[in-house]
Design a protein around this nucleic acid. Structure first.
Lengths: 133, 133
DNA sequence: CAGTATCCACTGGGATACTG
DNA sequence: CAGTATCCCAGTGGATACTG
């Protein structure tokens, strides 16, 4: 009789795997671009620098909290840069860095694939749903 | 005095935006590949067909529930195909469809970008954390 | 204008147990 | 072997209110 159960062993594996995934570059990147607002912010900024409130308006429905949070992580990762103009009232501009522009191009590739194949995916869904009704 | 508050207007915008995002092909795709397990399953299958339990072992730490759920949505989207061999015990194989192979190639592009630029991101993070300490 | 702070509801996914 | 069913908790993000 083993002293560890199957569940315990899988939990151990899960812990190790989580650690591995945190270190995995691909997963770190997927964590970023999968964030609901990141892709939208990057897309908005790819047409040029924007102010905080411009982003808030362009990305309708985002709360100040999430907009700030998104901008902070992107800034921390070196994907966007934040410029404060100490006028009254203050003005803050966000711009894509060269690294961020690279990410924008990658997202364009994702977008192209999505738009090219979405019809096929939709047909597959209809077929699947029809068969399993 | 307006009859709608700023919050109410933003909520309305959020609802419309959510609807828009649901219809947006890019976001639908991002929803898929951002799923914690999808990328792992696709990667596992890109080296050839696998059985359910093989996937469970290769992707350490995944629970049966999530593995099944992931496989179902991928099958529904036409990205993988499921083949049941009615032997005893039953045998189920999962394979990437041509569409799924296309997705796998896209994920390879994502992976390449991630691995090429992760160092730069890490340096940016260290710089950011040092400045804001 | 450009945020920050707090509270809280909701849901995604893990643990666990069971089945054709 | 290949799942399904149920319970349940933690983390995410929205609402709301406040500030330099």
């Amino acid at each position: 009789m083993p002293t560890t159960t199957a569940a315990q062993r899988r939990e151990q594996a899960r812990i190790e795997y989580d650690a591995f995934l945190r270190d995995c570059p691909t997963n770190q990147l997927l964590d970023r671009i999968s964030d609901k607002w990141v892709a939208l912010v990057v897309a908005a900024l790819s047409s040029g620098p924007k102010r905080y409130s411009e982003l808030g308006r362009k990305i309708a429905g985002v709360s100040p909290k999430m907009l700030t949070q998104t901008l902070r992580t992107l800034e921390r990762d070196g994907l966007i840069s934040r410029t404060v103009t100490p006028s009254v009232p203050v003005r803050v501009d966000y711009t894509l860095t060269p690294l961020g522009e690279g990410l924008a191009r990658l997202l364009t590739a994702v977008k192209d694939w999505a738009e090219t194949h979405i019809e096929e995916v939709h047909r597959a869904r209809e077929r699947y749903d029809a068969e399993n009704s």
